[in-house]
Computed example of a mutant assay.
Amino acid sequence: MRARFDEVIHAPNRLRITAALSTVESADFATIRDLLGVSDSVLSKQVKPLGEAGYVNITKTVINSHVRTSLSLTAKGSKAYRAHIAALRAITANLGEADAAREQIAEHPES
């Protein structure tokens, strides 16, 4: 897996959605909504681009005349999520190395 920053996943709520779905086979729409603390419309708006990118499956089933929506991360979505996290780690590791170099220079300016 190659680290790759993903603009679709990077939006805060979409990152939280993919993170939550990465730990389960599937989750009810309401469960993810409550976990994020957002409205149905906000969650729908955030799930849509994930679905369009092929990262999230959106499944609707009718149970006792009520529509139940469940979300699951696809194999493509799981791979993209892991690559995005790896890219974020690489970015922050590089910042950490730069900070360490600046500290070392500050401690020994004559070098």
Rank of each mutant, 00 (worst) to 15 (best):
M1T: 13
M1D: 11
M1Q: 13
A3M: 01
R4W: 05
R4A: 13
F5K: 10
F5T: 07
E7K: 13
V8T: 15
V8M: 05
I9N: 03
I9G: 01
H10F: 10
A11L: 09
P12G: 03
L15S: 08
R16I: 01
R16V: 02
R16Y: 01
I17V: 15
I17E: 02
A19V: 06
L21R: 03
S22R: 14
S22K: 10
T23M: 13
V24Q: 11
V24K: 14
V24Y: 12
E25R: 15
E25I: 10
E25W: 06
S26T: 11
S26G: 03
A27H: 02
D28V: 07
D28Q: 14
F29W: 09
F29C: 09
A30F: 03
T31L: 09
R33N: 00
R33V: 02
D34I: 05
L35T: 11
L36V: 11
G37H: 03
G37E: 03
V38P: 02
S39W: 08
S39N: 06
D40R: 12
D40N: 05
V42H: 05
V42C: 03
S44H: 10
S44N: 15
K45S: 14
Q46D: 15
L50Q: 02
L50N: 03
G51S: 10
G51R: 14
E52H: 05
A53E: 05
A53D: 04
A53M: 07
A53W: 07
G54R: 00
G54T: 00
Y55E: 01
Y55T: 02
Y55N: 03
V56I: 11
N57D: 11
N57P: 00
I58Q: 08
I58R: 12
T59P: 00
T59K: 10
T59A: 08
K60P: 00
K60T: 11
T61E: 14
V62A: 09
V62R: 11
V62H: 04
V62T: 14
I63Q: 13
I63L: 14
N64C: 01
N64W: 06
N64S: 11
S65G: 02
S65K: 14
S65H: 10
H66L: 10
R68K: 13
T69I: 14
T69L: 09
T69K: 12
L71I: 12
L71M: 11
L71G: 04
S72R: 10
S72I: 06
S72Q: 13
L73K: 02
T74Q: 07
T74L: 06
A75F: 06
A75Y: 08
K76Y: 05
K76P: 00
G77S: 06
G77D: 05
G77C: 05
S78C: 03
K79F: 07
K79A: 14
A80E: 04
A80I: 07
Y81M: 09
R82H: 13
I85H: 04
I85W: 05
I85K: 12
I85C: 10
I85V: 15
A86V: 01
L88G: 07
R89S: 05
A90C: 00
A90M: 03
I91K: 15
I91E: 14
I91A: 12
T92Q: 10
T92F: 09
N94A: 14
E97S: 13
A98Q: 14
A101V: 12
Q104Y: 12
Q104G: 10
I105D: 06
A106F: 08
A106C: 01
E107F: 11
H108R: 12
P109T: 02
P109Q: 04
E110K: 11
E110F: 09
S111Q: 09
S111N: 08
